[in-house]
């Protein structure tokens, strides 16, 4: 019953987000700050992870192709498919659930504990709109981060392929271009938008409705990471079933 109550509260929170909007001059600054914190601040770690995981995907693929009849272009093809379809949108989002999600939960949770949210409410400000809506708008730029992850993942694969001596650059690039399906990009970005919504709202929910003190802020961050990851995995399954099957 508690789960149903939490899900209901989550959807009521989504509705409340759009009521009594904050003044645009204030909201504009909040959105820019959240873009800086959530999007710009994530680019470094995303670029680093994407580049090296792209390289690892390439090495693993190359090491598992021991049949001389299989063309070397398959390394580039497999790297592209893995990164574009799953690694960049889905697994990067799970990593972001840890980075961005715990940041959102702990920052809103700390505001709850230190009565800052009560201070907003007493002033007659819709605290959900003030705190969560800018994060939702900022996360609309999340596909930009995933584009970088896609690009650098493939570049990382190319580098690993060339410097590891698994195939020539030509073979890898030919593989990348082989049987390219533009809809796969659409599919990846539809998923990314859904994950962005989840990444902004589930951690906000856990921070906003938390009760207790500093210890509970930590617990809320962990719970938020778990539930955001679960939601991403389930949405990933459903989106794949609906869009690709």
């Amino acid at each position: 019953m508690q789960y149903l109550h939490n899900i209901g509260t989550y959807f009521l929170m989504i509705i409340e987000l759009f009521r009594k909007p904050t003044k645009w001059s204030v909201m504009k600054e909040l959105i820019l700050k959240d873009i800086d914190d959530l999007i710009i601040g994530s680019i470094g770690i995303v670029a680093f992870i994407a580049f090296f995981v792209g390289g690892v995907v390439t090495i693993q693929t190359a090491l598992n192709i021991d049949n001389p009849l299989i063309p070397k272009e398959l390394i580039g093809f497999a790297t592209r498919q893995s990164i574009l379809l799953e690694f960049a949108p889905t697994f990067m989002s799970i990593i972001m659930a840890g980075k961005v999600g715990s940041f959102i939960t702990s920052s809103i949770g700390t505001m709850r504990v230190t009565e800052q949210i009560d201070a907003l409410e007493v002033m007659g400000i819709n605290s959900l709109n003030y705190l969560v809506f800018p994060k939702l708008v900022a996360m609309a730029f999340y596909p930009f981060v995933i584009s970088i992850a896609m690009f650098l993942g493939v570049i990382g694969g190319l580098m690993a392929c060339i410097y590891g001596g698994y195939a020539s650059a030509d073979d890898f690039i030919t593989g990348i271009q082989q049987e390219f399906e533009p809809f796969h990009i659409v599919y990846a970005f539809i998923k990314t938008f859904l994950f962005a919504f989840v990444l902004a709202t589930i951690p906000s929910y856990h921070g906003y409705y938390m009760k207790g003190g500093a210890l509970e802020v930590g617990e809320a961050s962990t719970t938020s990471f778990v539930w955001t990851s679960v939601a991403i995995i389930i949405i990933n399954y459903l989106a794949t079933q609906l869009l690709l099957s």
Binding site: T22, K23, S25, V26, K33, T110, M111, T114, E115, Q116, D118, A119, V122, M123, G124, I125
Partner: peptide
């Protein structure tokens, strides 16, 4: 309504001046 909370409840991300200006910016 003005409210002084037990723990002050100042907004961490704003300077003291910005905290004081906050109700003016909102209303």
């Amino acid at each position: 309504i003005g409210m002084v909370f037990q723990g002050s409840a100042l907004f961490d991300s704003l300077t003291i001046e910005e905290n004081v200006m906050f109700p003016l910016r909102m209303f």
